[in-house]
């Protein structure tokens, strides 16, 4: 179990395809960044078909989280420091 799974997260989508999650982020969040697979967020390296979209909404971060048996989840986690780090990467 990764640390993300022990965090206080909200599941916005479950059992979705990776592309559905990416489309959701781009359609529902004015602020997002594109990263490559392997990009580290919290304690995990992101799995995904490039580019991977990460949504930002104030201190909330929305990102895809893929597991082999359960497909891709779209998770929403509040973390002020991580949101700030991601915003710095946009510049």
């Amino acid at each position: 179990m990764g640390c993300v799974e022990s965090m206080n997260y909200e599941i916005l989508m479950r059992n979705a395809s990776f592309r559905e999650c990416r489309d959701y982020i781009r359609q529902h969040f004015r602020e997002f960044i594109d990263v490559q697979p392997g990009f580290k967020i919290f304690d995990i390296h992101l799995i995904g078909i490039p580019p991977i979209a990460i949504g930002l909404d104030a201190d909330f971060i929305v990102f895809p989280y893929t597991k082999p048996c359960h497909g891709t989840f779209l998770l929403r986690i509040e973390d002020t420091a991580e949101a700030a780090r991601l915003r710095r990467l946009k510049k």
Partner: peptide, 15 residues
């Protein structure tokens, strides 16, 4: 054999 598998393969192709 599922969408997650394609996602993992694409990841391996990059990293």
């Amino acid at each position: 054999h599922n969408d997650a598998g394609v996602t993992y393969a694409a990841t391996m192709g990059v990293i």
